[in-house]
Structures are given as C-alpha cells and as structure tokens.
Simulated assay, not measured.
Amino acid sequence: MVRKSENIIVGISIGDLNGIGPEVVLKTFEDSRMLEFCTPVIFANTKVLSFVKKSFESESALHGIDNLSQLVKGKINVLNIWREHVDIKYGENDNAIGALAVKSFTTAVSALKEGSIDVLVTAPINKYNIQSDDFKFPGHTDYLDKELDGNALMLMVNDDLRVGLLTDHVPVNDVASHLTEALVTSKIETIKKTLMRDFRINKPKIAVLGLNPHAGDGGVIGKEEDVILKPVIAKLFNSGTLVFGPYPADGFFGSGQYEQFDAVIATYHDQGLIPFKTLSFGKGVNYTAGLEKIRTSPDHGTAFDIAGKGIADHSSFTAAVYEAIDIFHARQEYDELSKNPLKIKEKSLESKKGH
C-alpha cells in the first residue's frame, strides 16, 4: 500500500455514471504528471470505467483493486465496490445509477473517516435520483456534516475569490427564519478558522452580504440586517475578528469590492453562487469547509446534455484535486506550527515584512 509520506491518497467518488463525472475524472488523470504527487483511487468498478474510457477514446490505464491495501503509486486505482452489470445511458435520470452514486460516495466517506484516504474529491451527483429510504440528503455537504466532525460550510474557491454561505440548500422563503445569532456567529468563526488553517491567511478579512435589497435600507426593506447581522458583526469585530458588513449584495461583486476581502459570506445559495459562477465557472471548486476531513468537488453538475459526447471540460475537477492537496499540506503546516505558538508569531512577522 502507498505510504502517506510518499504522496497524498486522493479518494474519488464517481458521481452519476450517466453524467460527465466519470469523463472528467479520467481526463484529469490522463496527465501522468498528476500521478507524481498523488495516488488516486476511484470508488466504482473497473469494467464500468473501461466502458467510459472507450466512449471518448481515453488512453488512461486503470488498475483494478479489491482492497485499499492494494493501492499502487503511479496508477489510476479503481476500487471495485460493486460487481453487478451497469447499463449506462448517458443523459438519462436513473434511480439505479443514483443508488450506485450513493454507494460510491458513502464508501469513500467511510474510507476518509478511517484514514485510508487522505482527501476526498466528489464527482457530480443528481440530487433527485440519489434519494431513498437509506439516503435522504439533498447533497454531499449535508451527509458530510452528519458523518464527520465539525460544522460544514459550503465555500466556493477560485484563487483569491472565496464565497461562503450562511444557508445553502434552503428554500428562499425559509432563509430569513434560518438566520439566527448562533448560526451567523458559527459560520463566521468557521470561515475565519478555515482561512487561517487551510489557506495560510493569518489575519483574514471577511465581508458579509445583507439578506435584503440595499442591506435592508435601515429597516425600510427588511430588519434582518439591523436585528441579527449588524449586532453579530459588531460583537465579533470587537473581539478581534476582521469581519465587515452587511453590504448590499447587488453591486458588491460588479464593483470589485470583493477583491478587498479574503472571503465573502452570502446569506443564501444563489446570492453567493450566481456571482461566483459568473466570475469563475469551469475553474471554481466547491470546498466543504469546517470539517476535520477534506472534501472538494467541481463547480458544475452532471451536465446530462453533453454526457457521453467526450466534450466535457475537466478543468474544474482538476482544480478540485489540486485544491484538496493544497489544503492538506496547509493543514499539516498549520497544525505543526500550532504545536509551537512562537513559530506562528514568527511566521506572522515574516509575512508583515514581506508587505
């Protein structure tokens, strides 16, 4: 088995087989240089992925294994977690395929919890066909929040642009009722710790967007800003957290104001993801921050409309692999420095001198 000191073991859940997930996974590792600094293991089935290879004439060599102890460095390892025949019909919504996506994901999460893999990168799933009596989660993040230690926070990342969410898969008409002092405090503290530990930012600056148009306009268009957001922001700021806002969301990104901050926290899903994907689509990474284990994914879905055509862009999935590895190294460094607070102080002073 590959030793963790040699290179990082990247576990990969295969996602919806009728979508572009398998294609972007295999395309990512067609570049042999990827195998020089990580050892991938795909939780799926060798025969199925061999079929996918043929559909877009991939030259990737797959190494089938039946146990994680059989991992081989320099190979695209495929852990066979099912044996039954799979009928792939690109672009179709299929409950049987959804069940296999769940099996791949939950098996990979178990390996992550056990430490058999170092990081997890998830290919896209279809949120409709994964539902069952055994799996009643709207997506990856909610399941990870239940299974892993910590408090999950969806953080979209592309270089220095980082957008987090106070609420994620919540209906718009329920967002206001979810915004509490405890939730907002927890999310801001989570993103602060994430920026320090996972992104090597010693004194992160965080912006919070308002829920209502014009950030409530002094209570004329809504009171959530005055009643919840402003008091929490002031309290945290006074205790040493560099958090600012709430800012009106409409012009925040268009004006380039986001560039002044290390992270932006949106109050709900589309408020954050629409501008993020407008600026970064195809290059961004979805990172589940706040957990003791590392999981990333591409910023796109199953893309049924182009599945099986061999034209899917794998840039975002490749970026997700790189991001997971970078965060793994950053955590190791931070945790090592944390054992000696003096080293953190010295590192902070060196950073200031560099500016």
Rank of each mutant, 00 (worst) to 15 (best):
S5I: 13
E6Y: 11
N7F: 10
I8G: 08
S13R: 01
N18P: 06
I20Q: 00
G21R: 00
V25N: 04
L26Y: 04
R33L: 14
L35E: 01
L35A: 12
E36I: 07
P40K: 04
V41G: 00
V41P: 00
I42C: 02
F43I: 03
A44S: 14
N45W: 00
N45Y: 00
K53W: 05
S55C: 05
F56W: 02
F56E: 01
A61H: 10
H63T: 06
H63A: 10
G64T: 03
G64H: 02
I65L: 01
D66A: 11
D66Q: 10
N67L: 01
S69T: 09
V72N: 08
G74S: 05
I76R: 00
R83K: 15
Y90M: 03
E92H: 12
N95I: 14
G98F: 07
T107Q: 08
A108W: 01
A111S: 12
A111Q: 12
L112S: 12
K113A: 14
D118R: 02
L120E: 11
V121E: 13
G139M: 08
D145I: 12
D149S: 15
V157Q: 05
T167E: 06
V170Y: 03
P171L: 06
N173P: 03
E181M: 09
K192C: 11
K193C: 15
T194E: 11
R200V: 13
L209Q: 01
A215R: 00
D217N: 11
A234K: 11
T241P: 03
V243A: 01
P246C: 06
F252G: 11
G254L: 04
E259H: 09
Q260F: 09
A266V: 05
T267Q: 06
Y268S: 09
H269R: 13
K277Q: 06
G282N: 02
N286Y: 02
L291G: 10
E292G: 15
E292L: 13
I294F: 01
I294L: 02
T296F: 01
F304Q: 07
D305Q: 04
G308H: 07
G310Q: 07
S315F: 05
S316I: 06
F317C: 10
F317G: 09
A324T: 14
Q332I: 14
Q332V: 14
K352E: 14
H355M: 13
